[in-house]
Design a binder for these strands. Structure first.
Lengths: 223, 223
DNA sequence: GTCTATAATAAGATAGAC
DNA sequence: GTCTATCTTATTATAGAC
């Protein structure tokens, strides 16, 4: 007696070998996404390989098949999250704006970017708890981050030349002034909001703080 | 035949029962210090109870005897490190200084304090990775941190009244502006120095950045 | 390439003697 | 209060069939 399954077995055998369960890129990406979620939620030591596997459509065996170890999977996660930020950062085009406009825009962009990318902020914290051991192993990541500093340095130079910015400000220092505030607001939001009883998710608070860091930076640059 | 040990046994029995190995406070403190080192180095999930015990003069059994669980020991560590900062913070006496002096001093104090207390910075990062779950359980910690905000608010008000500061600045926002920079320099030093190739331990760099945050804050407060 | 079952070990916690 | 030995469970990683 023929069953429905039997009739499927009669389908053309020449069809591209795309059986139900073989889809390498998708499987790999599925695992990587699950790993992002788990590592970001639990940290490097806190993350469980089993938990990552459970978040996927596939099995733990495939995780090891594609990534070899928990640590290598973590490095892939790190590179993915650092990579995501680059794409957006490169789209800023600071060089077409007046220096003051450019800096103002960079500050607001940085603020919004961190606010929207909690995952990135968390993975950077996790990596620092582990003394940056893995960023140091990834030449990719350093290369990814050179763009902002370059753009910032160029803008500072233009402003200085035009007499709208003071001289002697280091790009790396200014980058730290901007990033630190935007990063800390997100990285430390749990302890900060609990201890000082502020709702950092409140849109009014957000707007006020965004205006503050913008103005603090602008004033600092005045001649 | 009498041995040396036998003669010791003849010592006065009324002496306070202070046998070689019984010293509760010291043992407890020994464990707590070891726990600070391990948790700060490895994080909450990464820390190993065995490793903590190995750092002590005593055994794992005593750790459970005094602290009941890994988690409760972690909370004690958290409270200890938050407590340490309070003592120094309270010694600032901002109210006896002119408002500008007071803020300048607060900025420099905060900078130096974070620079010197890497342990505190790390435990706060670890705690945020765990969503502040443990600070929320400790009413002690919130109480500890109210002093700075109060002192800062008072100083802002004095400056505003004297016409040396602008109006409308929130104490909590200014606290964040100051803390974020001082904290981030330490918390993110591994990734930051690797990616941007700066030596944040260099005394010249330190002095430059300390002057920057001080001036940025002062300028921001100008009317 | 994928799945189930399992090996090998590490980790938190406790028993019970002294 | 303290120590050694151990229980129990969780965790990374792999074997081997399909």
């Amino acid at each position: 007696m023929k069953t429905v399954d039997d009739s499927l077995a009669d389908a053309p055998v020449e069809a591209p070998r795309k059986t139900r369960k073989h889809n390498p890129e998708k499987t790999r990406d599925d695992i990587l996404q699950a790993a992002v979620a788990e590592f970001v939620a639990q940290g490097l030591s806190g993350a469980r390989v089993d938990a990552i596997a459970e978040r996927t459509q596939t099995s733990k065996r495939m995780l090891y098949y594609y990534f070899n170890s928990k640590e290598q999977l973590y490095i892939q996660v790190l590179e993915k999250l650092y990579g995501d930020i680059r794409t957006t950062e490169s789209s800023l085009d600071l060089d077409v704006l007046a220096p003051e406009e450019a800096i103002g825009r960079l500050v607001e962009f940085t603020f919004d970017h961190h606010d929207r990318n909690v995952d990135f902020v968390r993975i950077v914290c996790i990596e620092n708890i582990h003394n940056g051991a893995n960023v140091k192993q990834s030449p990719t990541i350093r290369a990814l981050s050179q763009h902002v500093l370059q753009a910032l340095g160029d803008t500072l130079q233009r402003g200085e030349r035009d007499g709208v910015f003071r001289a002697g400000v280091q790009a790396v220092d200014l980058h730290m002034l901007i990033s630190s505030f935007c990063f800390y607001r997100v990285s430390n939001r749990h302890t900060f909001s609990e201890i000082f009883q502020v709702d950092l998710e409140d849109e009014a608070v957000k707007a006020r703080q965004k205006a503050m860091i913008r103005e603090a930076v602008m004033r600092y640059l005045l001649p």
